[in-house]
């Protein structure tokens, strides 16, 4: 536990936060990273490039046309890939024959080709990471496999032990995998969406709602809501409970850097968020208690 606390503090220190914010900007895969840092979310709709700060980023980033790899420190990594072109249902059926039967079973009822395509893409990413972890331990690639717990959360099961924790998320345009060598991790990516009546009621507590609604314009209101939601969903995934947790059981203070002030069983976590592609947000959650 002491290790976890030390580790999370280290991660937090590694993140450049000149004005106490933990919302960082990432460019799309294939674009030159600019390293812009958003000091306040209300500036999120009009980021100000901060190229000087980019040079001091401690992150190691690898980028090509379709993939952005961000290494936050020695043990936390984020892979963002552009979603593959949508497969036809016929191709998807054929692909299901080539993946483990328990994964094929989960996808057999999926009628949305985009969801099935992204799920297959995510599975390939997880398998890649699992095989890489086996190789780095000097073990054969077939000593690892992806398993799911009873709530559907993926894990790497290995015969050599010490496999990393993973968390997967996808939206229409991107597939994201977070990898943590030592601790559970949760990740979520979300684009902005129309804030229909009832959505804020279902997901936010009064102070959170007030923060979202205080934004100057609709674009920033939507962005604030997406940020808040990704924090909540990253938490739900990190603790392995998913939607068994009512989003309103979690309360974030958003006045400075996002801070979880109420959670089931008082779980303590570190959070890190990335503004991505202009209007999407990726959040990571690392519980340490």
């Amino acid at each position: 536990m002491r290790f976890m606390r030390r580790h999370c503090r280290k991660l937090c220190k590694a993140v450049p936060s000149p004005e106490g914010s933990s919302l960082l900007c990432l460019q799309e895969p294939g674009q030159t990273a600019c390293g812009r840092v958003c000091s306040q979310l209300h500036e999120a709709a009009g980021y100000v490039p901060d190229t000087a700060h980019a040079k001091s980023w401690p992150f190691q980033r690898e980028t090509d046309e379709n993939r952005l790899g961000v290494r936050l420190d020695k043990s936390i990594e984020l892979i963002v890939e552009r979603a593959k072109p949508c497969l036809s249902m016929r191709t998807i059926s054929r692909r299901l024959e080539q993946i483990p039967s328990y994964e094929a079973e989960r996808l057999r009822n999926v009628v949305c080709a985009r969801t099935a395509t992204n799920s297959l893409h995510g599975l390939r990413l997880m398998q890649e990471v699992a095989e890489a972890s086996a190789r780095s331990a000097g073990a054969a690639e077939d000593t690892v496999r992806i398993v799911r717990d009873d709530r559907g959360k993926p894990h790497i099961k290995s015969r050599f032990g010490g496999a990393p924790e993973i968390s997967l998320s996808h939206c229409r345009a991107h597939v994201v995998l977070a990898i943590s060598q030592h601790s559970p991790i949760g990740v979520d990516i979300e684009g902005t969406r129309e804030l229909r009546a009832g959505l804020l009621d279902a997901c936010c507590l009064p102070r959170e709602r007030a923060w979202v609604e205080r934004a100057d314009n609709e674009q920033v209101r939507r962005f604030r809501f997406s940020w808040l939601w990704t924090l909540k969903e990253a938490f739900m995934k990190a603790v392995g409970l998913g939607l068994a947790i009512d989003p309103r059981e979690l309360e974030f203070s958003m006045s400075d850097r996002p801070r979880l002030i109420t959670s089931p069983r008082g779980t303590h976590c570190r959070f890190l968020s990335f503004a991505f592609c202009g209007d999407s947000v990726i959040s990571l959650c690392l519980p340490y208690d």
Partner: peptide, 15 residues
């Protein structure tokens, strides 16, 4: 199965 995200599901159920 229809491509709903977690947020979609929360919104459909609460609405």
């Amino acid at each position: 199965d229809y491509g709903a995200t977690s947020l979609d599901i929360v919104e459909v159920v609460s609405s």
